[in-house]
């Protein structure tokens, strides 16, 4: 992103955020798999598991692709 400054690309921070959130949401989805919250509609679809998984994978891709150690 930067020509004048050697700044870590913002995409790397996006990746970290998605990676951590993806992991937490995926894990909480697995934890409630057998007893999903009663007040949540469509809980049988287990949205936290696939949505958390998606975030985790995207975060991983961003972290690797925009890693500060990897020169463009």
């Amino acid at each position: 992103m930067s020509e004048k400054h050697e700044i870590i690309p913002v995409w790397f921070f996006v990746g970290v955020l998605l990676l951590v959130y993806g992991f937490l949401i995926f894990a909480s989805g697995l934890a409630e798999w057998s007893h999903p919250p009663e007040t949540v509609h469509l809980a049988n679809l287990h949205a936290p598991v696939w949505w958390g998984g998606l975030l985790f994978v995207l975060g991983l891709v961003y972290c690797i692709k925009f890693s500060p150690k990897r020169k463009a």
């Binding site: 959130y21 949401i25 909480s28 949540v40 469509l42 936290p48 949505w51």
Partner: peptide
């Protein structure tokens, strides 16, 4: 949000 999101997704 409260209708469709349980723990984790609600925090997001």
């Amino acid at each position: 949000l409260a209708r469709y999101c349980g723990p984790g997704l609600l925090g997001l």
